Amino acid sequence: MRLTRIGGPTVLAEFDGWRVLIDPTFDPPGRRYAFAASTSSVKTLGPAIPADELGPIDVMLVSHDHHADNLDDAGRAMLPSAGHVVTTTSGARRLALPHTHGLDIGQTVRLEADDRPALEITATPARHGPTLLKPIVGDVIGFAVRRAGESRVALWVSGDTVPHPALRTAAAEMDVDVAIVNAGGVRFGLTGPVRFTMTGAEAVSLLDVLAPRVAVAAHYDGWSHFRDGEEGVRAAVRAAPQAVRERVRWLPDGVPVDL
């Protein structure tokens, strides 16, 4: 598998002839975006690769469509050109594109092509903050991507999530090759100590349960709402058990890395 870090949550994964783009965000930095309940964040870093230099994309995985740090204007403009878009059921209704597949947690879609093995993509548990705030924060999913007919997960994407029992149960049950885990510890001034994504320490704890062959951190920089950030993730990895440390790979910006 080849991964290219583009910025924020956006990673290009290439394997078995498939080109899969995760949470496309390609707007330039500097703009403030509004989120739910009067919260907002400024994008501080632009994409390492412009959208028009990526080439054709077979699948775009959109963990949720309603926050600009996971799907911004330039990323949204790319959706019609993808072969498939996979997102939440509610997101598919909002996007209203004919090639969009909406999934609830636990549901699977099979994607086929004449010249490559079929893929099965299953929505995995994600919760973008405390349970009581779900009506405000909205639906989010992760993705388990398998070669059709195989039980092993070739690629798992956590999506934006905090730790919760369903996530840990799913992590314990999956056999994962490559995991992309969103961290950064998102908090807002208006919501005080409440977090909306995992800290580095929480991501490390999850990886200890998941035990993938390779783990990659994502979505920990490039926005003003990260409180743990890159240093928090790196510090947590340095303090992690050796079995976790040996699995983590840090991707350079814009450079394809073969795993």
Rank of each mutant, 00 (worst) to 15 (best):
T124W: 00
A126P: 08
D221I: 09
V109H: 00
P135N: 07
R94S: 15
T199A: 11
L190D: 05
A171S: 10
K134P: 00
A211C: 08
P165L: 05
V109I: 09
G192E: 05
V145W: 06
V204P: 03
A123K: 02
T161R: 12
W223K: 02
P165V: 08
A203K: 01
R234N: 09
L190M: 13
V209R: 08
L167V: 15
A179T: 07
H219E: 09
T199R: 14
I141L: 08
F188M: 09
G129V: 10
I136T: 13
N182Q: 15
G106D: 02
V109L: 00
F196E: 05
I141F: 02
D104I: 00
A123E: 01
I121Y: 01
V145Q: 09
V214Y: 11
W156E: 01
Y220V: 14
G189Y: 08
R187Y: 03
D160R: 12
R152Q: 12
L155P: 03
D208V: 00
A218C: 15
A148L: 04
A217Q: 01
P98T: 13
R187C: 13
P98I: 11
T169I: 14
A166S: 15
L119Y: 02
L210M: 12
V178H: 04
L167W: 01
L155E: 04
V162I: 15
A183N: 10
A215W: 00
V186G: 02
L95M: 11
G102A: 10
A217S: 15
G149T: 10
P117H: 10
G189V: 12
A217N: 05
Q107V: 02
R147M: 05
A172K: 12
A92H: 01
R234S: 10
S158F: 06
F226L: 07
R127F: 01
L133S: 09
V204F: 03
A215S: 08
H219V: 12
G142P: 11
A236K: 07
A123M: 03
G192N: 08
G138I: 12
Y220E: 14
A171K: 06
D228H: 04
L167C: 05
T122K: 00
D139K: 04
D160Y: 04
V209C: 03
G192W: 09
D177A: 13
V140P: 00
T161H: 12
V178A: 06
R94H: 11
A154N: 06
G200C: 09
R234E: 11
V153P: 01
D221A: 14
L111W: 02
V194D: 05
R213Q: 14
V137N: 03
A126K: 07
R168E: 15
F226W: 03
A113H: 13
R187S: 13
T131C: 00
A144T: 09
G229H: 05
T131L: 13
T199G: 10
S158E: 08
T197M: 07
H101A: 07
E173S: 14
L167H: 03
A183W: 00
R127K: 12
L167T: 14
G184I: 08
V209Q: 04
L132G: 01
R94E: 14
T131G: 03
R93S: 14
H101E: 06
T199P: 07
R213K: 13
P135C: 07
P212D: 04
P212L: 06
W156V: 13
